[in-house]
Design a protein around this nucleic acid. Structure first.
Lengths: 115, 115
DNA sequence: TGTCATTGTTAGTTGACACTTACGTTAGTG
DNA sequence: CACTAACGTAAGTGTCAACTAACAATGACA
């Protein structure tokens, strides 16, 4: 799982995912969208493939890549708690913050056990 | 924005975000959950703060941290296209794949950028 | 004031990683 | 078979980040 997060942390790899999200593209086509050399893209594709984020299909001398929805779903499963808490807490946090300012700063007892 | 993605790519920092998601914790309390030294956690907190993912509040000699919902929402805004395409394309991709096998492999004309 | 407690900061080291160049591999074509 | 096209792989390099140890800063308290 950590490999998946690390894979999408690289901007070029996220851009690759955007490219092969809808269309199946060859390695050369993908590389033509970037400034870096083709082997660099090839290594990025390797990382994405090992992470299960893209599929590789050989067709003659070319290799066609495509985003793998199941892999992207795993990213969501790992990260969705952030906005689950985020969106749900967005309103609540604002209210709590407002209440806190009216009450004044918390004393020391609040940090230990009870809120 | 790249800093935000890079911030959450580190497992320890994601764990910190989980800790301060609901409760406001001091740096020492956060550090006590980890094996690494306090300075390491302090640096992680710095990265999270610079990325806008946590807020820092001073109370005496302590510093209290809390997750910032707006920051987490920005992560979602950047990454949600993945599962938007992912879930929507999960069915479509299967159908397209099936159709492709009936049609046979793509010919060279489909490779747009050539020559 | 002196001392403790809590935390941030700096210096330095180690390891990961993104990149390039050169080479190897596989498939098609005369 | 010789040649080319499309890729991947290996080796080497430079940069960045995560960590530890030592130091500094700030506030509380007798």
């Amino acid at each position: 799982m950590d490999d998946i997060i690390r894979a999408i942390s690289e901007p070029s790899r996220r851009e690759i995912l955007r490219l092969v999200r809808h269309d199946e593209l060859s390695a050369g086509q993908i590389a033509s969208h970037f400034q870096v050399t083709r082997p660099a893209i090839s290594q990025h594709l390797r990382v994405l493939k090992d992470a299960g984020l893209v599929t590789e299909r050989r067709e003659g001398t070319r290799r066609l890549y495509r985003a793998r929805p199941e892999g992207l779903a795993r990213v969501r499963a790992e990260l969705e708690w952030m906005w689950d808490a985020g969106l749900a807490k967005l309103k609540e946090a604002a209210e709590t913050e407002q209440e806190r300012r009216q009450r004044g700063p918390m004393d020391d007892a609040t940090t230990s056990g009870r809120r």
